[in-house]
Design a protein around this nucleic acid. Structure first.
Lengths: 152, 152
DNA sequence: TTACCTGCAAAGGGTTTGCAGAGTC
DNA sequence: GACTCTGCAAACCCTTTGCAGGTAA
């Protein structure tokens, strides 16, 4: 996967976010931009608690409530995607310039793997036409047992 | 959809469940069979609370803890499938003799349509082999705008 | 100045856990 | 008879909410 933590990307998403907030009448607070920047510095899935600790360790202290608030805004403008991998912990993922992929979840250890299969897109097209839906996006999860858990 | 609440199906899933428990060394309690039967009497998705209330209203009182326990077993032997529709409430669905289907959700009116495409199963097989996962089930959702909402 | 936003802490709600008694094998 | 399962309630934990002070516009 290409490095998408470069300053160019950081600037672009910041601009997208700023425009979105202006359009929606939300205030552009330093906390919100700091959270966006933190999210785009990492490539892994994350949950709110992880993000909270990361920022705390950088001495940039924001409350959990503000993180939840900001992540909602980021979902609204498509800069972040939300996943529910079977557990009750919401997982998030940055969504700008990320290649299309889907997820495999290990029901034993919780490990999440990614894969990409072009047939998913083909099915989306076929089904959209057949059912007369204008499809915007999909979510596909495979649940099973990963290699490590099969062996142990 | 065909009626799958017939006694034949009830008997068959009961047998599958019994065999599974024997194999795994779990005890065959009346509560567990009652929960299985209740699940297979309905065709809709359900959550634990709904199931709990249904059984309570039938004067078959089981605790929530037992329902959670039993549903886990049913997931283990593939008689039930679990969904996480974005909320924090787990949704379940019976899985035996249900024709494989996935869902289209209209983001405008909330309508849910079902479709079936054999390529989903093919992808599951391919990805399972490639990623060395023993895949038990999948969930696939397409989000978009249905015909009626496009027209209005 | 006017809301909206933040931080804190408590409340909410689905799920899990601990324990005593009941029931399966 | 041994040991798991059940039921109950409390504990857990992620998320949301309420409120007082702070800050963008």
């Amino acid at each position: 996967m290409e490095d998408i933590s470069c300053s160019d990307t950081q600037d672009t998403v910041k601009e997208i976010f700023a425009n979105y907030m202006k359009q929606k009448g939300h205030r552009k607070t330093p906390e919100r931009f700091a959270i966006l920047a933190e999210i785009y510095e990492h490539n892994e899935h994350f949950d709110v608690e992880t993000l909270f600790v990361f920022m705390k360790n950088k001495n940039y202290q924001v409350s959990r409530a503000t993180i939840y608030n900001t992540v909602d805004l980021l979902l609204g403008c498509g800069l972040v995607v939300k996943h529910q991998f079977g557990k009750n912990i919401a997982q998030y993922e940055k969504a700008f310039e990320c290649s299309q992929h889907d997820h495999l979840i290990c029901q034993s250890c919780g490990r999440v793997a990614e894969f990409c299969d072009p047939r998913v897109q083909q099915i989306q097209t076929t089904v959209g036409e057949l059912m007369e839906f204008k499809i915007n996006y999909h979510s596909l999860y495979f649940y099973g047992i990963c290699k490590k858990c099969q062996d142990s």
